[in-house]
Measured scan of single mutants.
Amino acid sequence: MDEEYDVIVLGTGLTECILSGIMSVNGKKVLHMDRNPYYGGESSSITPLEELYKRFQLLEGPPESMGRGRDWNVDLIPKFLMANGQLVKMLLYTEVTRYLDFKVVEGSFVYKGGKIYKVPSTETEALASNLMGMFEKRRFRKFLVFVANFDENDPKTFEGVDPQTTSMRDVYRKFDLGQDVIDFTGHALALYRTDDYLDQPCLETVNRIKLYSESLARYGKSPYLYPLYGLGELPQGFARLSAIYGGTYMLNKPVDDIIMENGKVVGVKSEGEVARCKQLICDPSYIPDRVRKAGQVIRIICILSHPIKNTNDANSCQIIIPQNQVNRKSDIYVCMISYAHNVAAQGKYIAIASTTVETTDPEKEVEPALELLEPIDQKFVAISDLYEPIDDGCESQVFCSCSYDATTHFETTCNDIKDIYKRMAGTAFDFENMKRKQNDVFGEAEQ
């Protein structure tokens, strides 16, 4: 370990593993360490099931009705991949897709007046949907046509809207959309967690709705994908990429100290040895004095023996409960997957309800979601602090990732990755940087 590296990475969460992969592909010498004996950090999948019970201090362990412990891979952080989103792009560019198998999530649902409705995925579904009345549908269709044709580089498509100054509230007004449709559009399509976006320039919202539609167009059922064997497969896929390009991995490796000289990182000390480096990437748990708390998320993992009611017996789905429907500031989400994804025993389902904490009784906040899941065989409640770095790391060369937020997709995580890359490399992130180099010394032969 007593060696000189360009970059040392602490923690094998998804953000850290993707950055480690990119740095290795770009010719950097990388050492990647984790104090845990497993990959994934906060974003790991726990197996066998006995391990999950232990982690949540349920000492009696799983009953026999849960089947074989080894058949379970339970995500600690519930997220899906947008089919046309940035993480899929990263997987394709790096060819990490060859280590993973994905399934399309069967449906996306939205909560309205105590019931759940399928988010329409085709024009026919939209016309048949009970989510809105006849005239509302016509106006909504006009709005969707506007979004589909919108091109930020072609003012002819703006229809009198200025993407940089017109607020989204004004765009909704222009198409005369009612409150329910606005809730549905902002939260189930643009996937905002709160209503803060309404008074911001509309460009980002329009682009988010386009991303949803384009992702949906790829597979038809929903815009989301999920990897077989759980999300823990993602960091491992990128760790393989890093290793192929010469990255060194050490799990179960305690970090005793991060060594600084004149305010700059110069190395990491572990078990009496020092590895030197020019730059350091880590998750917040490794540098508690360089991060601040930015809120909390509650996630309740529920094991069920039945599909969720009114989802047409889907073996995977997402449910969004827009905040307006339950008098909150932030949406509540449910991600459900099952034995069909090799993450649970035969006939079992895993539904994870999550939201940003707003009160001193977080469990009560998630109740509307839990009511949709009854009866629940077993619950595991996790309340996590969200951390963000206190500075950009440019001076110390210590670059810290943000905690995983309450969103049900990876777009915010990818933004964090691109942002850290830019601060480390001094140049904007470009997907081309992730391409495997042809015929290089570490390149794998085609399968």
Rank of each mutant, 00 (worst) to 15 (best):
L373H: 09
S222R: 01
E106W: 09
P389K: 13
M168H: 00
E64A: 03
G41S: 09
V7E: 07
D6E: 05
E411D: 03
P78C: 13
D176C: 14
K118M: 03
T15M: 12
M336R: 02
E358S: 14
E106V: 09
C282F: 03
L59W: 01
K435S: 13
L373I: 09
K156Q: 13
L372N: 02
F80L: 02
Y192N: 04
I321T: 03
F143P: 03
Y229H: 06
E136A: 11
D361V: 12
R68G: 15
D440A: 06
T15L: 04
T360V: 13
R55H: 09
L76P: 05
M90V: 06
L144R: 07
R98Y: 15
A445D: 04
G263D: 09
K221E: 10
K379V: 02
Q318D: 10
S213P: 06
N207F: 03
R290Y: 15
L228F: 08
G27R: 06
A217N: 12
R169C: 07
T124I: 13
F442K: 13
G267F: 02
Y39C: 04
C277H: 13
K348D: 12
V105K: 00
E444Q: 00
D331V: 03
V105D: 02
E159F: 13
Q397R: 10
E60W: 12
T194W: 04
D385G: 10
L304M: 10
M33S: 14
E42N: 10
A294V: 12
D2I: 02
N433G: 12
H409N: 08
N312E: 13
T166S: 03
E125G: 10
E365L: 03
L280V: 13
C400H: 15
D154V: 12
E64Q: 07
G186L: 10
Y117H: 12
I298S: 06
S330A: 10
H341F: 15
D256G: 09
P163D: 14
H187S: 15
K112H: 04
Y53W: 03
L127F: 10
S65K: 12
L211V: 02
R240L: 01
N262G: 12
K422R: 11
R290P: 06
D392V: 12
D151V: 09
C17W: 03
F431D: 04
L59M: 05
S222Y: 10
C317S: 07
Q346L: 11
I319T: 00
V343E: 01
D440H: 13
T94S: 04
L31F: 03
A369I: 12
D377N: 11
E358R: 05
D440R: 02
V7S: 13
L203M: 02
Y99F: 09
D196A: 12
M434V: 10
T407D: 15
D6P: 00
F150G: 09
E432T: 11
E51A: 04
